[in-house]
Simulated assay, not measured.
Amino acid sequence: MRTASLFCSWVVMLGAATAAMAEETPQWRDLFNGKDLTGWVDVNTSPETWSVRDGMLICTGLPIGVMRSDRQYENFLLHIEWRHMEAGGNSGVFAWSTGTVEEGVRLPKGMEVQMLELDWVNQHKMKDGSLPPIAYVQGELFGAGGLKATPDNPRGSRSKSIEHRCKGKGEWNTYDVVFVDGVVKLSINGKFVNGISQSSVKKGYLCLESEGAEIHFRNIRIMELPPGVLTEDQIAPLVDE
């Protein structure tokens, strides 16, 4: 009987230890539940800008602005799938963002991961009539609204992808992005091709961007990772609800 009792105690302790380990192990979590906008807060768009259809998050693109996550994130992996529905469409996702916009400004401070439809470069010629570099529409990374960072593959202050992998209008693109300790690494459709580092902000809100054209999102997931060492100036201010 004593042996059986000890065995049962051991099983209970093992189960408790396993449960504790499972809680500590990073897990994927949905940021979009496929049904409604739970977990997201409108910043400066409209009730008509964002909707849900067939498990997709639909953004009309108007007015220009963002909605943000209901909490801040520091170190994490982000999986997000997106497709533009208009040629030359513009959008993006902001990380480590303030989640607010200043008066007269439509987009927030943050680290932007660009989402441009391929025809954008044909629709926005340079002053001399030449076309912008094709790299512009291939997941550029840059600090927006005053956020500073150091590009891996410089195009000015922006970092350009070293291989062109984005798909065009109506086709789904997959971004897998690593955000750790001020470093960003971007995988486009299954391959890491861009990076930026030394972000001046390392913790803040996630924002999805509405910028003039219809775009669809799906399968938005996050895996939070252990925190790092932060100073106050590296954390975006909390937004009062």
Rank of each mutant, 00 (worst) to 15 (best):
N153L: 05
M1L: 06
D54E: 15
S69P: 03
N153V: 08
V229Y: 13
D70A: 11
Y73D: 01
V137E: 01
G110W: 04
L62C: 08
G55H: 15
E241K: 14
G146Y: 12
I235W: 11
G65N: 07
W82I: 07
R2E: 07
G190T: 04
I80M: 10
N173P: 00
M67N: 09
S130C: 04
C207A: 08
I215Y: 02
V239H: 11
G99W: 05
M13C: 13
V11G: 01
K160Q: 12
S159H: 02
P133V: 08
W50F: 14
L131R: 12
W172S: 08
G146C: 02
K191I: 00
L107M: 06
I220H: 11
G15K: 03
Y205G: 07
V66T: 11
A95W: 03
E24C: 06
G39S: 10
D152F: 10
N33T: 11
V229C: 04
D54F: 10
G39Y: 01
E74D: 13
N90S: 03
D30C: 10
P63H: 12
F76Q: 04
P133N: 09
D240M: 10
Q123Y: 08
K35R: 13
F217E: 04
W28N: 11
G104V: 02
V93R: 02
T98E: 08
D181I: 00
T25Q: 14
P108T: 01
T3I: 10
L57V: 05
V41E: 12
G92M: 06
V121Y: 03
N90Y: 05
G110V: 01
M67I: 14
A213T: 14
G110N: 07
N194F: 08
Y205R: 06
G212I: 03
Y136G: 06
M56W: 13
E86G: 03
K127D: 11
L186Y: 07
L6H: 13
L141K: 13
I215L: 07
L14T: 09
V193A: 01
E103H: 14
V113Q: 10
S161Q: 00
K127T: 01
R155Q: 13
M56Y: 14
N194W: 02
L238K: 15
V183P: 00
L31C: 11
E163G: 00
V12R: 05
N33H: 09
L78E: 02
G55K: 15
G55Y: 13
E23F: 15
C8I: 12
A20M: 09
E117I: 01
M21Y: 15
V184D: 00
D54K: 15
V52L: 06
Q27R: 15
T150I: 06
I64A: 13
R221T: 11
W10C: 11
P132G: 07
A144V: 05
I220P: 00
S197D: 08
